[in-house]
């Protein structure tokens, strides 16, 4: 177990985070294994974004330790190995696709032929190679999300944090995104992705159900189905939520 913790790309031990009186996370313990797509699933306000921001080093936990690639966060030294993407595409709309990728590449120290190669590789992955010189302002929302993913991948990160990357895009493109994630896993990239689309849960290697800042369960999709006795993830989520409420009440009475 100790060995697994040390080698895991992401390891949280009893992590809590409070903003003033508001507890955003309490007692979260989980590990993400190398090369898997780990889903962080829960409704809006369940603490997904807070958790990802702690992993990125954008803030300190109130309690517990957040370990990323073996270092206790926040630690700038892991920055070069992490890729990050959110639901807002976060691109410079005046610039072309190539210029955006080149800028973020340069920030990560890429230049010359290596940079040009990465621009081609990442755009090929997201099927946008033919739009390389289009200004971002002329792209559709879905295309921008794909460029955004390419930007997050430009420096070949070992670890990818994706905060609701598929919010607001059409079902077909959402499927495509999960195909990209699967391809990245085969290249050895570890992905931690949050979503509130429960139908996406089945595509994760393993997933954590999060509600009111606490973990309900962490398991493979098949394991969660088996334990809850529910085929449907919506129902499975409700099952775990109810089970937690019952436990909490019992604890309160005791």
């Amino acid at each position: 177990m100790g060995d697994e913790l040390a080698n895991a790309p992401v390891a949280l031990a009893n992590v809590s985070k409070a903003f003033g009186q508001v507890r955003a996370l309490s007692g979260v313990t989980l590990t993400v294994r190398a090369g898997e797509t780990f889903g962080l699933i829960g409704p809006n306000g369940s603490g997904k974004t807070t958790l990802i921001r702690l992993l990125l080093g954008l803030g300190k936990p109130t309690g517990g330790t957040v370990r990323v690639l073996g270092r206790i966060m926040p630690d700038r030294r892991v920055a070069a190995q992490i890729g990050y993407m959110t639901q807002s595409s976060a691109l410079y709309s005046e610039l072309s696709v190539r210029e955006n990728l080149a800028f973020f590449g340069a920030i990560y120290g890429l230049h010359g032929r290596a940079l040009a190669g990465r621009i081609t590789d990442t755009l090929r992955l997201v099927d946008l190679l033919e739009r390389v010189d289009a200004p971002v302002a002329t792209l559709s929302g879905g295309m921008r999300q794909r460029v955004s993913l390419a930007c997050a991948l430009i420096h070949q990160p070992r670890l990818l944090f994706l905060d609701e990357p598929t919010v607001g895009i059409d079902p077909e493109l959402r499927m495509a995104f999960w195909d990209y994630f699967a391809r990245l896993n085969t290249e050895g990239v570890t992905i931690l992705v949050s979503t509130h689309h429960l139908d996406e849960a089945a595509r994760c290697t393993r997933l954590a159900l999060l509600r009111f800042g606490t973990l309900l369960a962490v398991d493979t999709p098949a394991g969660l189905r088996r334990e809850s006795g529910q085929e449907d993830f919506d129902k499975a989520f409700l099952y775990f939520a109810q089970r937690q409420s019952v436990t909490a009440e019992a604890q309160a009475q005791a």
Partner: peptide, 14 residues
Amino acid sequence: SQGTIERLMVSPLT
């Protein structure tokens, strides 16, 4: 507002 500052903040850019 467009969120690029977050990208820069998690990058090695100081």
